[in-house]
């Protein structure tokens, strides 16, 4: 594998977006890019990552390769990333380490790190990325982040309901309750503020607040978030990158039996 990002912060943002949700991950590299999936220890939150060749300045993968890493270690190395430096990932044919080369030609500087790869045996779940859903919402990731931060302070359960009037996020704590209603809007001046809802039926789902606080760490990937909900199934929270690919989170709901 030899894959070069023209801006090293792209890879840093991707890794930082889920490094607190899961501890380790297998990156599966092939001609069609880098894909990964990891589930958290409680088996409630699943992270999916897709980095297609379009995200790279140059991308070459001669043989399919799996790269297992501890995310805490990789995140340490990526602290060196900045917008002036490129980052090339190298993995040899017989992979036992990942080489990261940061280059800042303007400053005549380069940095090289090596990370020992780990053998991760994790089962993969069969998720259908084209999963049909009753409700799809596209909204500002900044707005979503603020709403999650504000409401999750009040309760460890977070409810989302969608009707034709809009999307309602609500919490019911022991001492306080809160509710945020967002209606579809079109902001011609700033398209990232748009909110659109497409739905075939209403939904009302609850999730554990702590996972939502993990998910919003990925908001730096995109100024938009796509939400997909169906009754009594995991929700998908997806951040798509400008150049293709992105990071998605499948979150299992809470409900009464």
């Amino acid at each position: 594998l030899e894959a070069k990002f023209d801006d090293s912060t792209i890879f840093k943002k991707i890794i930082d977006s889920f490094k607190d949700s899961v501890t380790q991950i297998n990156f599966v590299c092939s001609e069609s890019g880098i894909e990964a999936q990891a589930i958290d220890d409680s088996r409630v939150l699943l992270v999916t990552v897709s980095i297609p060749p379009s995200c790279f300045e140059s991308y070459r993968c001669d043989r399919p390769t799996t790269i297992g890493v501890y995310l805490a270690s990789l995140a340490k190395l990526l602290k060196s990333a900045n917008t002036n430096s490129s980052l090339t990932l190298y993995v040899a044919d017989k992979p036992d380490e990942l080489l990261l080369l940061f280059e800042e030609p303007k400053n005549q500087k380069s940095m090289e790190y090596k990370l020992k790869l780990v053998d991760i045996t994790a089962d993969m779940l069969e998720v259908d990325s084209d999963m049909k859903s009753d409700v799809t919402v596209e909204m500002s990731s900044v707005e979503f982040t603020k709403t999650v931060r504000d409401l999750t302070q009040l309760s460890d359960s977070f409810t989302v309901s969608v009707t034709k009037d809009g999307i309602v996020f609500s919490v019911q704590g022991d001492t306080a309750q809160g509710k945020v209603l967002l209606q579809p809007r079109e902001d011609l001046a700033d398209e990232s503020n748009n909110l659109s809802i497409s739905m075939s039926k209403t939904i009302d789902l609850s999730f554990a607040s702590k996972y939502l606080l993990d998910i919003i760490k990925a908001a730096s990937i995109s100024n938009k978030i796509f939400l997909k909900f169906s009754d009594d199934t995991p929700a998908l929270f997806e951040f798509k990158m400008e150049k293709g690919g992105g990071v998605g989170f499948y979150l299992a709901p809470k409900y009464d039996d």
């Binding site: 589930i39 409680s42 088996r43 409630v44 939150l45 699943l46 089962d123 993969m124 779940l125 069969e126 998720v127 359960s157 409810t159 609850s206 554990a208 199934t233 995991p234 499948y250 299992a252 709901p253 809470k254 409900y255 009464d256 039996d257």
Partner: peptide, 14 residues
């Protein structure tokens, strides 16, 4: 709101 579901109940293991 009751029980936390796990993803295994929804997705098959590959």
């Amino acid at each position: 709101k009751g029980n936390q579901k796990r993803l295994d109940g929804f997705f098959k293991v590959k």
